[in-house]
Amino acid sequence: MSRAALLVLADGRFPAGGHAHSGGAEAAVKAGRITGASSLEEFCRGRLHTAGLVSASLAAAAVLGVNPMELDAAADARTPSPALRVAARKLGRQLMRAARATWPSVELDALAREFPKGAHQPVVLGVTARVAGLDAVDAAHCAAYESVSGPASATVRLLSLDPFDATAVLARLAPELDRVADQAVEAAGRVVDHGVDALPSASAPLLEIGAELHAAWPVRLFAS
């Protein structure tokens, strides 16, 4: 594997549209559930072990060569909120564009043809990691990290939170993030043998409910 390729892919400045999404933080801030660094940390921890674990497992399974169509359908089943399905496909399509320009490959071209309106972002992330020569555990780390870095940077903008506090939250979550990435890789291994039903489906009711509330707001800063 190339460790530097992982840095390119995981860089918050990788131009794949993530900056416009808050990962549910905007809805949680509005509802008064995120008010500072400690509630941000609990938010991120909950998201990491639910949506983050599912995304990391999808991405890891895609690296291992599991059929993206099946992974995408499994992602749909694990995303009851239509607002989140739309956001995941939008982000998937944006990542696809950035990935194809960054790591041109027939595999990404084929994925783009199969999903002209975008596949779920973690599936695209996994295929991207694969063509960039990365391993399943790298893709899992990347997905798990994105599941918490998005809400953290959005909260800096939404609450004018001290950016050092937000970054310290991410650092405190690092050991758990490593464990989630390992769990995701184990799950992805089971998917290779037993099919996509072996993917975790950990859910967070308030992320789903909050996403639907957020999508109905007439005025908001973030796309999701």
Binding site: R33, E42, F43, G46, A77, E176, D197, S201, A202, S203
Partner: peptide, 26 residues
Amino acid sequence: TVLDQELACGPGAPGGWDGPAVLAGH
């Protein structure tokens, strides 16, 4: 499969289960 969802809560559940992303005290 059109829906597959797990919910884990209570002592020993993965972190954040009662936090602002998951149940928030409900």
